[in-house]
Write a protein that binds this DNA or RNA. Sequence first.
DNA 1: TAGATTGTTAATCGATTAACAATC
DNA 2: TAGATTGTTAATCGATTAACAATC
Lengths: 214, 214
Amino acid sequence: MENKMKKNSNVSMSVIRRLPRYYRFLSELNKAGITRTSSKELSEKMGFTASQIRQDFNCFGGFGQQGYGYNVPQLCDAIEDILGIKAKHKCILIGAGNLGKSIATHVPFSSLGFELSAVFDSNEKLKDEKIGSLSILPETNLAEYINKEKPVMAILTVPKKPAETLTKKLYDSGVKSFWNFSHYDISMDYPDAIVESVHLNDSMMTLSYKLKDE
Amino acid sequence: MENKMKKNSNVSMSVIRRLPRYYRFLSELNKAGITRTSSKELSEKMGFTASQIRQDFNCFGGFGQQGYGYNVPQLCDAIEDILGIKAKHKCILIGAGNLGKSIATHVPFSSLGFELSAVFDSNEKLKDEKIGSLSILPETNLAEYINKEKPVMAILTVPKKPAETLTKKLYDSGVKSFWNFSHYDISMDYPDAIVESVHLNDSMMTLSYKLKDE
DNA sequence: TAGATTGTTAATCGATTAACAATC
DNA sequence: TAGATTGTTAATCGATTAACAATC
């Protein structure tokens, strides 16, 4: 399917989780005009073993050259493809309060492969306000909008109760990915949904465990 | 060290990453007054194998009873201990803008084992304002505060450049954990720091990958 | 006692690391 | 050619699953 991919498309999750870090690192090298690197060099700077780096890069094609190393721009490009960073997945924001506004303005959607395509709020009085170039649509338009534009992700910055109702509506109309800032625990009711959550965030808790024993 | 822990304290990371989900699930059962459950039941409701659940719970003590199952409140309590949810790790917020304010008011710090202990902003004019019960301190007081109160985590909601300077200051004075909303990429310069980031968030990118192939 | 369900050991599966031949 | 570094295979390590005896 992917043009440049030589090898198996069944890249394991362990590898995928390392890709964003590779990508950030290689992008920096790229920006600095460095066109060449090696598994040894990356190993020293990133803390993975050189062996692992070679195995990882080999999952999605032969971008290395024996005796030479890897071509930085090529590698960057390949990872962008794999991570879908060039895509423009539509994403909607629900809740235009302080939190919603700051997310809309601070998050670099496009460099993460997303496009913030609409903002909704239950308060119809906000319909004359704007967030960036987007008008704030009334929540009554939500179903129609989803049907037409097929967004893939929703960001929820609303209280618990409305979040619960909204999630049902969204999930049933095909939105299965959430960036959840509400106190409603989506994954309890929809184990299949892809959820990023700032509140009962798994890693945040892990963090507190780590802190405790160190 | 832990009173109730029978077994090895070297619980693997794979197990730890599952604990928050167990915890949320068991808390719900607990709230609903259910005092008893089994690995089979949890397996069906949570999507882990019953075998894995038993292995996991056994890492940190024998809370089960053959032929009966597990005691929900006991299990909840044990996981709270392990995750350090009962602790009150001090955490400071830097940047009292829209984003900072919403974080301060929306995040349930105490149920995550943290306590928001101070808010700082470079703008001294904000010193008469308050966020909840906390006054907004000038950033010039930062070093002194850290020295005295020893916070373990900092939340950054400031622009890229100041974030860079602040991170150095914080890291050097012992703050090694960050919740980063700035565009400065902490883990590039401090690979040992524990960083949660909303922007170049690893899982967010993983998400976009997932979306792409499904 | 009979049934259920744990705790634990053994078997399987997958991911990481080591080693080295291929080759630029 | 000699040196470097990949691609790839084999060895190791760790995590998950299966199986079943212990026992409530």
